[in-house]
Amino acid sequence: MSVLTLGVATLAVAIAFGVIGLSMVWGPANRRVAKGLESIELYYGSGQPGSVAGAGQVGLPYLLIRLGQLAAKLSPAGVPASIGRRLNLAGNPGSWTVEKVLAYKGLGLFAGAALGALLGSRSGVAVFVFGGLGAAVGFFLPDVLLYNAGSKRQAVMRKQLPNTLDMLTVCVEAGLGFDAALSQIGRNTQGPMAAECVRMLQEMQLGKSRVEALRALADRTTVVELRAFVSAMVQASELGVPTAQVLHEQAKEMRAKHRQLAEEKAQKLPVKILFPMMFCIFPVLFIVVLGPTVLSLLAMFGG
């Protein structure tokens, strides 16, 4: 009985030391993975702090820091997160961060108010009216520019998506893995889709699963076709469907949608050029064709 007790105690001590050893090995590894993912988020500027308290960490002058804090107080609670999402949609241009956008909103508030007041300085009422309008325009101008940049980038992504899927399909059917195919796209192509593929590959290399990286990609886009592709890939990964088969079907469907979109734009063209023709082209044609005749008739009846 004592031998059995001694064996159980020895086994318990071995298990305890094993758990301690695994925690010592996996703890730093998990921390390194988390730190790596955090570095990717910081590199792409997708941090979404709830306030601008950390604005000094991005090298902003003190005045802009205070203006950013003022803009954050004047904005609703969810505005920093919304700005972070729009930055992701715009591809995080340059070194823009949520703090910088808020700082420029505050700067635009005072600059617009000063410019409006200067324009309306001839009248006391006009000073307040133009000053208020200028402050509103300056405050919302960074949001408009950011939204415009995001819309343009998403349009480019929609245009590049069929070619990207074709290249993914060719690489996977040639024997490459999905990660290697993403690497080939990032190495041999340019544009927003290549940048998104590189970012997704970096996230997977630093510890994220393929499903998590795909869902993060879907959160960074508003392109319906790309979100549908991500959904199909996630379902294929969870159900064990071969990746090459899913890519082949998705690429074929994407080509069909791209062709339908081109046909739709072609059908809209006559309606779009109708009003320019009526108000710009037809009057000029009438003047050129009927002008000499009208002048001859006026000269005849006037004489």
Rank of each mutant, 00 (worst) to 15 (best):
P283D: 06
G132V: 06
V33M: 14
R122P: 04
I20L: 15
A55R: 02
G132N: 07
L109D: 00
T164A: 12
F286Y: 11
A117S: 14
I40W: 04
P242Y: 12
L6A: 15
R259G: 01
Q69I: 02
D143F: 10
N30V: 12
G116V: 03
T97P: 05
G47M: 10
M157V: 07
G21M: 10
L165A: 03
G45N: 08
N188Y: 12
G18T: 01
G116Q: 02
Y147R: 12
K152V: 05
Q160H: 04
T5K: 13
G303R: 12
A114H: 05
G84N: 01
G291M: 11
A181N: 04
A126S: 15
V8E: 02
L239R: 11
R199C: 05
E264P: 00
G54D: 13
S51T: 15
G56Q: 09
A194L: 02
L146A: 08
N88G: 13
S51M: 07
I15N: 05
L226K: 02
V246L: 14
Y62E: 10
C280Q: 00
S231R: 10
I65N: 06
A266E: 07
G177F: 06
L290S: 09
G191K: 03
M193Y: 02
G138P: 11
Y43V: 09
I273T: 07
F282E: 01
V52W: 03
A181G: 08
S231I: 01
R259P: 00
L214C: 09
S2D: 12
E173W: 01
F140Y: 15
V19N: 04
L201D: 08
G59M: 12
V170C: 00
V246Y: 09
A218R: 07
S75N: 07
F301Y: 15
E264M: 13
V172P: 01
I273Y: 07
L133F: 15
L119C: 12
L89D: 01
S123N: 14
F140A: 13
V137I: 15
A181P: 05
R122W: 09
L247M: 13
L295R: 07
A135C: 06
R187M: 08
T221Q: 09
A117N: 01
V79C: 04
E38P: 00
G84E: 00
V156Q: 13
Y43N: 12
S121V: 11
I185T: 00
G21Q: 11
V246W: 14
F279I: 14
F130H: 04
F301T: 09
V284K: 08
L247W: 04
L285E: 00
L176Y: 13
K272M: 13
L146C: 08
Q250G: 05
M204N: 06
I185M: 09
